[in-house]
């Protein structure tokens, strides 16, 4: 892991001093931000930041693209990684002076970890990769970043972009194992569930994935086993719905699996039997589990007819009044909507 942090950044400025005090920058005219002395809602900038951005505005005015611009933009980025204009100008400069992009990527390895939550570090990386076209080492880098922040939105979307953009079988090959490892760390990590869906269902067919019947069975088994580990995990329930919806399969396909999760008490008589198709709720589960009640209600609603709607409405009513009261309005809406279908 890179050891440089933002605190060591300021030492760079300490050693070299402000741009206004450096001989090699004396040919640049710094440009203050505002003409008027007293703009509304000013930000109290540090001296170092004000100095660097004054010189940056001076550079933008002349349009200079040179090695020293890389230094200046790096200073600004380290002080404020969300300064998108500094990033944009840096990118144009890299191209203009034909700078070695492997050096730039090394710097990015460090900055990405320091400034994980900014859009720009990830996007700049993406621009570089589009040119270097060497995506393979990126997967390990991303995995390391996710160790620091397992749900970082930019990191996950960067990984998905990398896979989709280069669309290389070798890149895709390890993704299911990767998701397994992430979910083994935290089965509630919704970013990892979404990544699995992206890999399996949304990015085209790959070698070994063409037998869709087999893939669907594999995914159903996978998600059921995870629900039987943690019953009240909305990420896993959403994934289960996602599999069925994406493949136009009826929810009844998993009715037997779902029922014990919607029951108030665990049926202990059957827990010694191992049914791989229908793994039971975990021993410590708090039942009934609201997503299971909702799922069962959806099955009954689809069944239709007065009886189906009645059974679904009873379940919705139990959610509204007892198991998921915060969403009372929504469950009552579902009841009204369903009743309309049988009244017509």
């Amino acid at each position: 892991m890179p050891t440089l942090t933002s605190s060591s950044t300021s030492s760079l400025g300490d050693v070299l001093g402000l741009y206004s005090q450096r001989q090699e920058w004396s040919d640049v005219t710094p440009l203050p931000q505002y003409e008027e002395a007293n703009p509304a809602a000013p930000i109290f900038y540090s001296e170092e930041y004000k100095d660097a951005t004054d010189y940056f505005r001076g550079i933008v005015r002349t349009g200079e693209k040179s090695q020293r611009v890389l230094e200046l933009t790096e200073t600004i980025i380290r002080l404020n990684p969300a300064h998108y204009s500094a990033w944009q100008y840096r990118y144009e400069t890299l191209l203009a002076i034909n700078a070695p992009l492997d050096v730039e990527l090394k710097l990015m390895d460090e900055l990405a970890v320091s400034f994980l939550k900014t859009y720009q570090v990830w996007h700049h990386r993406r621009l570089l990769l589009t040119i270097t076209r060497n995506p393979a080492p990126e997967l390990a880098f991303i995995a390391a970043s996710l160790k620091v922040d397992a749900k970082n939105y930019h990191t996950w979307s960067y990984r998905q972009w990398l896979l989709a953009f280069f669309n290389d079988d070798d890149l895709w090959a390890g993704e299911l194992d990767f998701v397994d490892a992430m979910l083994a760390q935290d089965v509630r990590n919704n970013s990892a569930w979404h990544h699995r869906f992206f890999v399996v269902f949304q990015s085209g067919l790959r070698e070994g994935e063409t037998d869709r019947g087999r893939v669907i069975r594999r995914e159903l088994t996978y998600v059921k086993q995870n629900i039987s580990l943690v019953a009240s995990n909305p990420s896993a329930w959403n994934y289960l719905r996602g599999i069925l919806d994406a493949n136009h399969l009826p929810y009844t396909r998993v009715e037997e699996f779902v029922k014990p999760y919607a029951a108030s008490t665990q049926d202990t008589s059957t827990t010694d039997l191992v049914d791989l198709e229908n793994p039971p709720p975990p021993r410590g589960a708090e039942l009934p589990c609201a997503p299971a009640i909702e799922f069962l209600a959806d099955i009954f609603e689809k069944e239709g007819g007065k009886d189906g709607v009645r059974k679904a409405s009873e379940l919705w009513r139990s959610l509204a009044d007892e198991y998921d009261k915060i969403r009372k309005k929504y469950w009552e809406y579902r009841i009204r909507e369903a009743l309309q279908t049988v009244q017509e």
Partner: peptide
């Protein structure tokens, strides 16, 4: 925030100054 200004931690919003105005 509007009259006196934003403390130094808002330097991270230097590239979002119209947002600081709009939010306020």
């Amino acid at each position: 925030n509007l009259v006196q200004g934003f403390p130094a931690r808002y330097m991270s919003q230097d590239a979002s100054q119209p947002w600081l105005l709009f939010w306020t």
